[in-house]
């Protein structure tokens, strides 16, 4: 179907193709330059940076920053904590949000628009201002300083937003599919599980990729609900590497690159889903 639909479009000339790739190559160079910068920085020695400045071309070359960053400041442990938290937050938030979005978008629930707006409104307040109340609530519930607290807080805070986004996508699903489901006497659970979730795969994958980068890069919620360094995420370890007065930028760059690998892999894995995934229109 994909092939057919594209064959229907007008063929592009060689000039168009060349322009397309030239423009995008330039754009990509602009977008990749910080990563090149970070890579270069991670391969320099501290003394080279201290003498020649951060913006200078390297006059030193060493991989030493990687093992050193990994050993110091709990980078390894932080990565592991971040992976655990990210996995549970992303999975549970998307599960709950897709359930709520399904209910709101497909059923005549009284005040459903108000409920949706209310859930979205929860995300309009800057998260920073909720930190101290959240810490107190976690303490009151006895889950302060546990990964559970980090996970449930972030689920709560993400829900409204993801529900809103998924609601938008679910409203766009063709009605005929649901009518067919009704005729097949599918219950709500089957409809949700067998029809809505598969059809929402592109948007779920896109959201999962985005959510992974956000949750993985979270610092504020973790430091608000945690006190023990053994439970800190990678971002807190990065912040410690940065130093209060003096920063070992080469170590920080190396650690940042290590921390970038998991969300980058997730994006890579998921982009297939929202790019070449199921074409809704092709189902008709």
């Amino acid at each position: 179907m994909t092939a057919l639909s594209h064959a229907g479009r007008r063929r592009r000339g060689l000039g168009g193709t060349l322009a397309f790739h030239t423009i995008l190559t330039v754009v990509c160079l602009l977008w990749i330059s910080p990563i090149a910068f970070v890579v270069l920085l991670s391969l320099r020695t501290f003394d080279d940076i201290a003498l020649n400045g951060l913006g200078a071309f390297p006059t030193s070359f060493t991989f030493a920053a990687f093992p050193e960053a990994f050993r110091s400041g709990g980078v390894g442990r932080g990565l592991w904590n971040s992976l655990i938290v990210t996995f549970f937050v992303v999975t549970l938030t998307l599960a709950l949000a897709s359930m709520a979005a399904f209910a709101l978008s497909r059923y005549r629930i009284p005040f459903r628009r108000t409920i949706l707006m209310l859930m979205l409104a929860g995300n309009l307040l800057p998260p920073q201002i909720l930190l101290i109340p959240v810490a107190r609530i976690a303490q009151g519930m006895g889950i302060y300083d546990t990964l559970t607290a980090v996970i449930v807080v972030q689920i709560g805070f993400g829900l409204g937003f993801y529900t809103f986004v998924l609601y938008g996508f679910m409203r766009g699903l063709p009605k005929e599919v649901f009518e067919a489901a009704l005729l097949d006497r599918c219950g709500p659970v089957q409809t949700y599980w067998r029809i809505v979730l598969p059809l929402c795969r592109p948007s779920l994958a896109a959201l999962a990729a985005l959510a992974t980068t956000w949750v993985f890069n979270d610092l504020l919620w973790a430091l608000t609900t945690l006190q023990s360094e053994a439970k800190f995420p990678i971002t807190a370890a990065l912040l410690n590497l940065q130093g209060a007065y003096a920063s070992s930028w080469n170590l920080l760059a190396a650690a940042s690159l290590m921390a970038a690998v998991p969300p980058a892999l997730v994006f890579f894995a998921f982009q297939k889903q929202f790019v070449s995934g199921l074409l809704v229109g092709a189902n008709k």
Binding site: L223, A230, A236, N240, Q242
Partner: peptide
Amino acid sequence: VTINTVATSQ
């Protein structure tokens, strides 16, 4: 003794 190091700003 367990030391928990937290960046000054935080």
